[in-house]
Design a protein around this nucleic acid. Structure first.
Lengths: 154, 154
DNA sequence: ACAAAGTGTTAGGCATGCCTTACAATAATT
DNA sequence: AATTATTGTAAGGCATGCCTAACACTTTGT
């Protein structure tokens, strides 16, 4: 209904997040490059950027690089933080390989509640203060894996 | 492209999961009831059921109740298990209220990788063997919350 | 300066999934 | 049996997001 809503579809969140990553790397970013980064067509990027401009989250003129507005930065930062909380949790606590953790974070970041993310942070911090716990967990998991392999062999 | 693909869109997964829940409760389920359960129109259910029939996951004739095929049960069970792993993890480990845990599980179950779910199970089991850890975590979290409240007051 | 390479947009489509409206068919109640 | 309630379906739309093809514009390099 409203063009300038305060929530973004998960698709648009992906776009603004990618723009934000370029922003914090102080790299200039054009539509074509964004298309390559997100593995979508230039046409799709063109549509998405129009929407983000309409929502006043970015500034953009053809053939120039994309700029986040103040509100855009805020919103992007929020998405980006969610991503990192998830990625860290999967990697540090659940011992998931970085690539897989990232891929899952990318999808889940759009739908998970803030409350769960907060608890994930608290839990991670708690685990850091009791580091042996996670160390033990990882040890046990590899042990389990070894058992499974041995079981298959024998 | 292919009508009888082995993967389901998240929408169809929701439908088949709801059908499965009725199935394990040995409750008969008609389209109209399913529509009420999922908060969608009867028309949407009608469309979805046609797709599930085309994929041979359910058996269905108008005005009769919906039946899962063997393959349907297998697939539904997989979705349902994912849901439960997530719900349990959120509730037991992260101390999230049941309702919120369920709502999040409903959405995340469609996109999370099996590997992460497996690790969640292992982690939960590990925590059960060291129950004091989670107890301590919960204690600390409530303590933090109390601190925040007191900070706000003073 | 001009051609080639790169970039952006528009138009027309596809797929998902949801809706309402209107109508059809069956089930239940009196 | 007839009326009412319930259930199901078809048609026509809306929104999201993705695509290709074709065209337009800009930048780069010779």
């Amino acid at each position: 209904m409203n063009q300038i809503s305060d929530t973004l579809s998960s698709g648009l969140e992906d776009y603004i997040e990618a723009i934000y990553v370029a922003h914090i790397n102080e790299a200039s970013l054009k539509g074509a490059e964004l298309a390559r980064k997100l593995n979508v067509s230039r046409a799709s990027v063109s549509e998405a950027l129009s929407k983000l401009v309409a929502k006043k989250l970015i500034t953009y003129n053809s053939y120039e690089s994309i700029t986040l507005t103040k509100e855009g930065i805020e919103l992007a930062k929020a998405v980006y933080n969610k991503h990192h909380i998830l990625q860290n949790f999967f990697e540090q606590i659940l011992d998931i390989p970085s690539k897989e953790a990232g891929e899952n974070a990318c999808k889940i970041e759009h739908i998970i509640s803030q409350n769960i993310l907060n608890k994930m942070v608290e839990f991670s911090e708690f685990c850091q203060k009791h580091e042996s716990f996670i160390t033990e967990f990882k040890k046990e998991v590899t042990q389990n894996a070894t058992n499974i392999i041995n079981r298959k062999i024998s």
